Computed example of a mutant assay.
Amino acid sequence: MSEIVPVFDGHNDFLLRLLRDPDSRDITWLTDTGQGHLDLPRMRAGGFAGGFFAVYIPSPKAHDDPNFEAIMRNPPFVLPLPEEIPFAAALPVAMKMVGHLLWMEREGSLSICRSVADIRAAMAGGKIAAILHFEGAEPIDPDLDALHVWHSLGLRSLGPVWSRPTAFAHGVPFAFPSSPDTGDGLTEAGKRLVKECNQLKIMLDLSHLNEKGFDDIAALSDAPLVATHSNAHALTPSSRNLTDRQLAVIRDSDGMVGINYATGFLRADGIAETFAGFDPVMRHLDHLIETLGETRVGLGSDFDGATIPSDMGDVAGLPRLIDAMRAHGYDEALIAKLAHENWLAVLERTWGG
């Protein structure tokens, strides 16, 4: 295995693991328990230098909910959209998750970054460089007062939706095969949210957003268009993946896409089961690079939120992915762009210097 390349990653759900087991957060973060995809020792072993740490509000589960994971292993399927979560219900959950990230910073091994200079300093100092990201805007009120509160706490990236409706937009259902054109565009509150995020220099994440909402943000936003963890619809026709038309819009905005390791968004058959090797990852990377260009593609793992390739295993397997890129013919300059340089560049274009 060659020298470890630093990786800056577009999306992880580690904070959700801490939400579900807060009493063990020191063990979950600081020791290699072999559980999930992420912890500090495995991050360091794999070269994980930082990334977007998502605050995601889980939908309440009923006793009669279907087994969604089993359904996604047996396409075709269309999963129903969960119901909208009210702001008052989402707010305390988000507070707990942000509190966990602040604890990780106080512990001393992670830094919450508000600028690219912060990211570079954290990476140089051996700390995990974390961006506070909301995967769904449920913890924000339609008047946007809470947006300013969260911004003051470090929020620098926001997806208006997960795959359910919010006061601002409509998410795509998990469906295969399916177009992302599944519903209405932004609400009036959503249009105000886009403009306010532009003013505050909060990056807008297009992952999980339906096509009409995507087009509304593209028309309204003055920032680069970014999808932190999405793949190519032309190769895997999932509702969660981006069409070539959408990729061209992102390219023309000088934005970027982080490739998602979720197997159901990588496999041509849409089956959400793991696989050996990295061939589907390479096919999606090739397509994204061909469509977007070498400077607009990165990694957006979905660690701790998805079934990933077995040869990756967890974050400690990142060097195996990098070696697969080399074997595929990518040179060191391109690998560095994909691994971290492109993310830092698009954040500079979004946040400023």
Rank of each mutant, 00 (worst) to 15 (best):
D254I: 01
C197W: 02
A189E: 05
N231C: 10
R245W: 08
D181I: 01
G298V: 05
K191S: 09
A219I: 00
S178C: 14
G185E: 02
A306W: 06
H233T: 13
D279A: 15
E290D: 14
L193N: 05
H208P: 07
V297S: 09
G293L: 01
E294Q: 13
D252T: 05
P237H: 10
H284W: 15
S239P: 05
G313I: 04
I259N: 02
G190L: 04
A232K: 05
N210E: 12
L285S: 03
K201P: 02
H287V: 03
D184F: 05
L204K: 08
I289A: 12
G270Y: 06
G300A: 03
L225I: 09
P177G: 13
V257N: 09
I202R: 12
A227M: 04
F278S: 07
K195A: 13
N260W: 11
G293D: 13
T243N: 00
G258W: 11
F278E: 09
E188R: 13
K195R: 15
L193V: 01
E196Q: 14
L299M: 13
G213Y: 04
P177T: 10
L288F: 05
I271W: 00
T243P: 00
M312S: 07
T182S: 15
F303Y: 13
I202G: 12
T243W: 00
G255T: 08
G313S: 08
L288E: 08
E188S: 12
P180M: 05
H229Q: 13
L299N: 03
T291R: 14
V297Y: 09
D222H: 08
D302A: 08
Y261L: 15
P309N: 10
R245M: 13
E294V: 12
S230T: 10
Q199T: 15
M312I: 15
G264W: 12
E290Q: 05
